[in-house]
Design a binder for these strands. Structure first.
Length: 304
DNA sequence: AATTGTACCAACCGCACCTTC
DNA sequence: AGAAGGTGCGGTTGGTACAAT
């Protein structure tokens, strides 16, 4: 079709986001909810293109994001899912609700990829392009396959876990509505703060430079400048369960992937590890015949 | 102390798909 | 039915901090 660039012509700011811009964006989302990104620049006066706003929100400002410090379990999960799904980071991220696809992608490219290529593993299914050329109209089927293969990946990943959740802990049913990420943190280790708190801290750091976050100087330089980025938000233990009062609604990620996931009965931003585990365990016990083909640990694209 | 190399991550870019008209 | 607009995804790049020399 030859679409024109979304950020047409001049007047569009690029580069790192400032705390001020973050605030504007967050307030907008608080008022209107995520979505309708096209309207964001005009409504807020932000000199950013809609795409940039969406990206900033989903990768950085969105509530429930955990940054840095991938656990062994997460790492295993990524490795398995990547091997099965290929470079479909959004699909992988849908099984790790507190991680963004960008984060996972970066982690893969910087940590796991080398590790894997060194050990001769990896590559996985259609790792090349990340997109297998599934004909149009078979999208859902492909996604169903994704779900199935992801379950297998989870089984493997969790079976590798030295300290798995006892089966007795699993709920009876496949969750219709997976808990919001913050709510799943009750188990308490590495928790992440709610968005409201995130923004509050951002504000603190911004309005009182020299204070903890120091976000004023520079927002976008990663975890290395640990205190200087919004990623400092993640460190608040005990913030977990207090999310209910936040004005920022928990985002659903209406991606193509999650749509199919919805169809399969797991709606929303995605389950936590324990929920995922119960989900796959239930599947193992109960309905193996969900209409999904049994997928060997090979190339999911072979089904198309 | 200065320079060079490496690692990391936020953000951009272009394409593909979906939705609306 | 098809065009146009909107959104999502994956690959890539650029900037910064740290490590090594």
């Amino acid at each position: 079709m030859g679409r024109p660039p979304c950020c047409e012509k001049g007047g569009v700011k690029k580069g790192p986001w400032t705390p001020e811009e973050d605030l504007v964006l967050v307030s907008y989302v608080q008022d209107h909810g995520p979505g309708n990104w096209r309207a964001v620049p005009t409504s807020t006066g932000l000199m950013r293109c809609s795409k940039s706003c969406r990206l900033r929100w989903t990768n950085y400002l969105r509530p429930g994001i955990k940054r840095g410090n991938f656990s062994d379990q997460e790492e295993k999960l990524i490795i398995h899912l990547q091997a099965l799904l290929g470079n479909r980071w959004a699909a992988i991220a849908s099984y790790m609700p507190e991680r963004t696809d960008n984060d996972i992608k970066n982690y893969w490219n910087t940590h796991l990829k080398k590790k894997f290529t060194k050990t001769g593993g990896g590559g996985g299914a259609e790792a090349k392009s990340g997109r297998c050329a599934a004909p149009k109209g078979q999208w859902e089927r492909r996604l169903q396959t994704d779900i199935h293969t992801a379950r297998q990946a989870l089984r493997e990943a969790l079976s590798l876990d030295p300290d798995p959740v006892p089966p007795s802990a699993k709920p009876e049913q496949v969750p219709q509505q997976p808990p919001a990420p913050a709510a799943t943190q009750a188990a308490g280790q590495a928790t992440y703060a709610s968005s409201a708190e995130n923004i509050a801290r951002l504000l603190e750091g911004w309005m009182h430079p020299g204070g903890g976050s120091g976000a004023a100087g520079k927002v976008s330089s990663g975890s290395r400048s640990s205190a200087s980025s919004v990623s400092a938000f993640s460190g608040d233990e005990g913030a977990s369960a207090s999310n209910s009062g936040t004005a920022v609604r928990m985002p659903e990620r209406p991606t193509r992937t999650s749509k199919a996931v919805d169809d399969a009965g797991t709606a929303g931003p995605g389950p936590s590890f324990s929920m995922l585990e119960s989900w796959l365990l239930d599947d193992g016990v109960g309905h193996g015949d969900t209409g999904l083909v049994s997928v060997p640990l090979g190339d999911p694209c072979e089904f198309f």
